[in-house]
Nucleic acid binder design. Structure first.
Lengths: 143, 143
DNA sequence: CTTGACCTTACCACCGCTGGAACCTTTATG
DNA sequence: CATAAAGGTTCCAGCGGTGGTAAGGTCAAG
């Protein structure tokens, strides 16, 4: 199985597989004489694992730990659960920030006429005059 | 007013102000003989505008357009509103993805014993067996 | 034998900053 | 007046996870 087939089978792009190998998330694949990477079903399973974890928003660092736990037969489900719980709280933070943004923005949009005239509460708000707005969390950093 | 004072007054870090200048989001500031950047109140207002827009999650590109509209006396509030509406839909997409992630993860966490034993539905799910999960949107890309 | 689809490495770019290094200027103090 | 701290300056690197490109090597089919 070469990288393209592994990509197909796992849902992880070939390019990303190389990146994962480069960063040590997965071990370096074996090679054919011509230098092509070779993958087995086991590797595809690992890639699928990573793919699914990424879909759930886990960071590379978290995935590193999840892979360790997955491969460790003497793991405790406690540890896995703890990791997942922490991740949920990260998601919650992001959600809270996005919701705050949306709330504020929706409020502004609701009060904007949206006509030919230049008067616009949205720009007025951005321009400062630090009005009473549901400010909640302040920093952006919601990446 | 030097960059540190402008940063203080606007809420945008000095380093970030230089970055904005470099990328052309704001015009290059004037300089003292010694090469220090000089800012006026007008510039601080612009920086505050940008800061606030970032807090609402607008992209640099959006902010570029917002600044143009802000400085254009013959703008229409229609255009501003449209821009804001599009941004709300972007926020909605991100929210939907995060919510889907959280829902799935919460479900998994709820079914994990979290004890000393290794058995763990969270890892089982990640390992594939593509079970019936509220999959909704698939890709991560929630940045 | 050629074509074209795949593979390889290696690089730059993106988002929106942030940190650090190495150096220069201003300000406060002894 | 010398010095040290607290600013400023530039440039380079990095985050995650690709996307794109170039310039090549390899493989299977026609």
């Amino acid at each position: 199985m070469n990288i393209g087939q592994a990509a197909q089978a796992s849902g992880v792009q070939a390019k990303t597989i190389r990146y994962y190998e480069e960063t040590g998330l997965i071990p370096a694949a074996g090679r054919t004489e011509a230098g092509y990477r070779v993958y087995a079903h086991k590797d595809v399973n690992t890639l699928r694992f990573i793919h699914r974890a990424r879909q759930l928003g886990f960071s590379m660092e978290d995935i590193r730990r999840l892979l360790e736990l997955w491969q460790d037969d003497s793991r405790t489900s406690m540890k896995v659960k703890a990791l997942a719980r922490v991740h949920i709280s990260v998601l919650d933070e992001k959600l809270a920030k996005l919701k705050a943004m949306k709330r504020t923005l929706q409020h502004l949009v609701d009060h904007c006429e949206g006509d030919e005239r230049p008067d616009c509460p949205i720009l007025d708000d951005l321009a400062g005059e630090d009005t009473e707005l549901p400010r909640g969390q302040v920093g952006p950093r919601f990446n």
